[in-house]
Design a protein around this nucleic acid. Structure first.
Length: 423
RNA sequence: GCGCCGGUCGUAUAGUGGCAAUUACACGACGCUGUAAACGUCGCGACCUUUUGGUCUUCGUUGGUUCGAGUCCAACCCGGCGCA
């Protein structure tokens, strides 16, 4: 893997670059669609590529449970298994320590609403808290109860690396512990030392294997909301010879910006940075401006499946009654397949010359049609909504990248945010 | 004509003396940020209220029994089945 910065954004941490992997180039900053179980839900890899995605992110924990990393290895690795030829990133399973652990059954999420994360997790200090959860954390690793069949599994940093080696992604992540900002200060400290110890163990295991030459390993900065902890974490993680870095954890919007800037000021400039799990439009501008190169997020795909669609004016819930008879496209002027339904000239195999895939110009799909598909529970609803949302987000980051190259990032940001209501 | 069964929120249902009344679907709104997620939460008779509330009107119709009736009784209307 090789990373080259093409252009820097003046008076900020932002930059545009190219990340070369053995499965192709990634032009950064970029948005990485999430393909947790080796599938971007509702889309084929060809569709994902046509949307402009250059890389996808799959998950270690999920693929370990189903179908099993050894089976993926037998299939010839993730690329072959899922028939995606481009670069792949795998997450380490660290986030599941959080989502199946402290956050299990609760409404904690990565981005906390409001400003005061005052509610602490009271039962956290006691081992026998009685609260249902599927993950329990020890210093050596984490025991998980499978959310699929309830079987017990134990994942250590070494195990996470082994699984990720079997999966064979281009970029893999160190095993970490994501914490909720609701945790106590003492707990955050404990978790941070664990994440640091696990980072070192992940790295040592990785470097002892031949995979170190074919797979890049990213370390993950944690540290919660405390500036000092974040700083400490960024300093420690960047002192280790990782190929790149992830920024993890969960925070309020306000802290997200402070944290991103603080961390990226410390991380070495010449290595790529991935802001884990972030991807609302306003957050993408924030991240890029503060030195982030890669974003992944389930928001465009999940929101799409649940009926929330992105437009330049903000998100709309397409299932709402007001759209039942609305014959406009989702977003006027959007260049995606759903909105424009352009006559495309893709040649079909065996045919001579370009063959239009669409006959005539129907003008694309309407809001009314999408609304109908959702109410009718048609599978096409998910496909079209995901197509539009992913295009919207991927294209937004592409435009942000271009604005850096064109020296008009700040103008573009202002113009976009002026119209966009984050809600 | 006789007998039996049945008529409850848009639909299908639960309910056999304390009920504005169960559940599902539909409908309406909201939420979703390294995917436990084609999911979840809330609302769904009307009006009022700051509240854990208050008032009114509802289970085919009309009457009755009862402190109290969707629930018991009577008649009637409608539907299904059976016998003529």
């Amino acid at each position: 893997m090789h990373f080259k910065i093409e252009k820097k954004l003046e008076n900020s941490l932002g930059r545009a670059g190219v990340l070369k992997t053995s499965h192709g180039e990634i032009h950064t900053p970029t948005f990485v669609p999430v393909a947790t179980k080796a599938s971007v839900k509702a889309l084929t890899p060809l569709q994902v590529a046509e949307l402009g995605a250059e890389v996808v992110l799959a998950n270690t924990y999920h693929l370990y449970l189903q179908p099993g990393d050894e089976l993926v290895a037998r299939a010839g690795g993730l690329h072959k298994f899922m028939n995606w030829e481009g670069p792949i990133i795998t997450d380490s399973g660290g986030f599941q320590v959080f989502s199946l652990g402290a956050a299990y059954g609760k409404d904690f999420s990565k981005v906390i609403r409001g400003t005061e994360p005052a509610i602490q997790i009271p039962e956290r200090s006691s081992a026998e808290d009685g609260a249902p959860r599927l993950a329990n954390i020890g210093n050596d690793g984490v025991s998980f109860r499978s959310h699929i069949d309830g079987t017990l599994h134990y994942i250590t940093p070494e195990k996470s690396m082994e699984i990720q080696h079997n999966l064979g992604a281009d970029i893999i992540f160190a095993f970490d512990e994501a914490t909720s900002p609701h945790e106590s200060y003492e707990y955050q400290n404990e978790a941070l030392s664990r994440t640091h110890a696990w980072a070192k163990r992940s790295l040592e295991y990785h470097q002892s294997k031949p995979n170190k030459d074919t797979q890049a390993l990213f370390g993950i900065v944690q540290g919660g909301l405390e500036k000092d902890s974040r700083k400490k974490s960024a300093e420690y993680i960047s002192s280790l010879p990782f190929d790149g870095f992830g920024i993890g954890g969960s925070y309020t919007k306000e802290h997200m910006e402070l944290t991103t800037r603080l961390v990226n000021e410390i991380l070495p400039e010449d290595k790529p940075r991935h802001l884990l799990g972030i991807g609302e439009p306003e957050d993408l501008f924030m991240g890029v401006e503060n030195g982030v190169d890669l974003f992944d997020c389930v928001a465009p795909t999940r929101n799409g499946r649940n009926g929330t669609l992105y437009t330049k004016n903000g998100k709309i819930n397409i299932t709402n009654a007001q759209y039942r008879g609305d014959f406009q496209p989702i977003e006027d002027g959007c260049g995606c397949y759903v909105c424009n339904n352009p006559s495309r000239d893709l040649p079909l195999s065996g045919e001579e010359g370009p063959v239009p895939l669409t006959r005539g110009t129907t003008g694309g799909f309407t809001r009314a049609y999408l609304c109908h598909l959702f109410h009718g529970k048609e599978m096409l609803a998910a496909t079209l909504a995901t197509t539009h949302n992913l295009y919207f987000i991927i294209n937004l980051v592409k435009k942000i990248r271009q604005s850096i190259l064109d020296d008009n990032f700040f103008e573009f940001k202002e113009e976009f945010l002026k119209n966009y209501n984050p809600k």
